[in-house]
């Protein structure tokens, strides 16, 4: 296959950035998208240029490192995969492909396709856990969990923290990410004690980090490589409302 790539190049956070065009003549349909970027980088290196910076690691869709807009779509044209799982057979000979970093104020570009997603860590830090000291756990069978709840918790926990939801959202909201973590824990009996404080804490940090508000577009769910449902956002909003009404998360309150 012959392809024309327009890749976003930006030397650092303060650089304006621009597209750079590369024509690739010998692309195999069974290559992965990142194999292709490797090939481009090999050429750039040998020609004396600086290769395109992009994040990647496991290259099997689970670490959440990779992420880029491919022709304006987070992780590219195929559903339910990350950029590293995209294969060139999804394109046609002669295609032009535009490759850009995630675009969101809360994800500043560091270089080329690499953005700073550390805000996600801070959202988790604000309550996305169950407080249990190592060694203090009861026997794993002490608390049965109904299978449907365990399955729903798992569906939410499948989030890989890639940031596609933010990149796809017209408001650059990270509510799908935040809601998925909250739902993972709120479907489990172990996660009940801190449930409302968790909702309040994580959402407050989400807002402080500069992510936009959710206005129920649903683009996040479509972009999500793990198919995480926007229903979790509704669930988080219910918890938020309950927390607000009962005064949980405010000083001296007791929850319900």
């Amino acid at each position: 296959m012959k392809l024309t790539l327009h890749v976003w190049r930006q030397s650092g956070p303060r650089d304006e950035g621009r597209f750079e065009t590369h024509r690739m003549d010998d692309v195999s349909p069974s290559m992965s998208f990142l194999d292709l970027l490797d090939m481009v980088n090999e050429t750039i290196t040998l020609e004396g240029g600086e290769p395109i910076a992009f994040e990647h690691d496991c290259r099997e869709g689970i670490c959440g490192s990779c992420g880029m807009m491919v022709n304006g779509v987070a992780h590219g044209p195929d559903d339910l995969i990350t950029a590293c799982q995209l294969h060139m057979r999804s394109f046609e000979d002669g295609d032009e492909i535009w490759i850009e970093p995630w675009r969101a104020d809360a994800f500043p570009v560091m270089k080329d396709l690499v953005v700073d997603r550390s805000a996600f860590d801070r959202i988790v830090e604000a309550g996305g856990y169950i407080s249990v000291r190592t060694g203090s756990a009861p026997d794993a069978h002490a608390v049965p969990v109904p299978k449907p709840d365990a399955d729903r918790a798992f569906d939410a926990a499948a989030c890989i923290g890639c940031g596609a939801c933010v990149a796809a959202c017209p408001n650059a909201s990270a509510m799908l990410f935040t809601a998925a973590k909250a739902a993972h824990l709120s479907y489990l009996p172990q996660g009940q004690t801190e449930r409302l404080e968790r909702a309040m804490g994580m959402v407050a940090t989400h807002d402080e980090e500069g992510f936009g508000n959710c206005t129920n577009h649903g683009a996040c769910q479509v972009a999500c490589p793990k198919g995480i449902s926007v229903d979790y956002i509704a669930r988080l909003n219910r918890d938020l409302m309950k927390a607000t009404l009962t005064g949980v998360g405010m000083e001296g309150s007791g929850g319900d």
Partner: peptide, 22 residues
Amino acid sequence: LNIIDQAVAQGVPFAREYGGLL
């Protein structure tokens, strides 16, 4: 043995049977 206890307490969603056990 302790690892499984710890992970479950943290909310690791291991596969379960219909009775709710692991």
